[in-house]
């Protein structure tokens, strides 16, 4: 299999950010109560991930090569500032787009999935195109997990889930089951 495809599939399914790396759990558990919100959050996250991939590549190529020890602090400051800048830009340029996904942007920026993406991409030494593909896979994978969980949660709202387990405990267990189901993707396209 083509290397890029493998990177994409791996980030999307096999090593899904939420379900196998436990990244971005806060929005995953918090915002997944309605399908619509989670779809929009997923979209916004994918967008931020793309921005992150670009930022990380720029930083890695031009700045961190001189000062590797500043990696973490640069990532967090630069990504956060860039996203904040974009947020303001969207807010000014397209209020509709802002309402659809912009309001999630500040929430996402300090999310560990974003930072995780930057760090993983650096650790693996991904180049520019690889980084973009990786971000795309991770973002869509995050959206997929989020939307699936939201669907399940909305449906389980109609069930008689015992009061004891309702809430976070149930969400975690649903996430665990989803994660178990995603184990079926292990090894996908890696042997071919």
């Amino acid at each position: 299999m083509d290397n890029l495809t493998w990177i994409f599939i791996s980030a999307l399914l096999v090593n899904n950010f939420v379900l196998t790396y436990f990244l971005g759990l806060c929005p995953f558990l918090g915002v997944s109560n309605s399908l619509e919100t989670s779809a929009r959050l997923g979209l916004a996250t994918t967008f931020v991930m793309l921005v992150t991939a670009v930022c990380a590549w720029v930083l890695n190529t031009y700045v961190l090569i001189h000062a590797p020890y500043l990696r973490l602090i640069c990532f967090i400051v630069v990504i956060a500032s860039t996203v904040q800048f974009i947020e303001m830009l969207i807010r000014k340029l397209s209020p509709a787009l802002f309402r659809a996904m912009g309001i999630f942007l500040p929430l996402i920026t300090t999310n560990c999935a974003i930072l995780g993406l930057a760090i993983f991409a650096t650790n693996r030494g991904y180049g520019f195109v690889e980084g973009i593909v990786y971000a795309l896979g991770a973002g869509i994978g995050f959206t997929l997990a989020l939307v699936l969980l939201a669907g399940l949660r909305e449906e389980s709202e109609l069930s008689d889930i015992p009061a004891l387990i309702k809430g976070t405990a149930m969400n975690l267990i649903i996430a665990g089951i989803l994660s178990m189901a995603f184990m079926g993707f292990a090894g996908l396209f890696s042997s071919a």
Binding site: V77, F85, M88, L89, K92
Partner: peptide
Amino acid sequence: IGLFFGAILAIAQRFLKV
């Protein structure tokens, strides 16, 4: 970095404020 982004954000606050 601090100066650069501080400046960008300060400018942005001024010109992109809603």
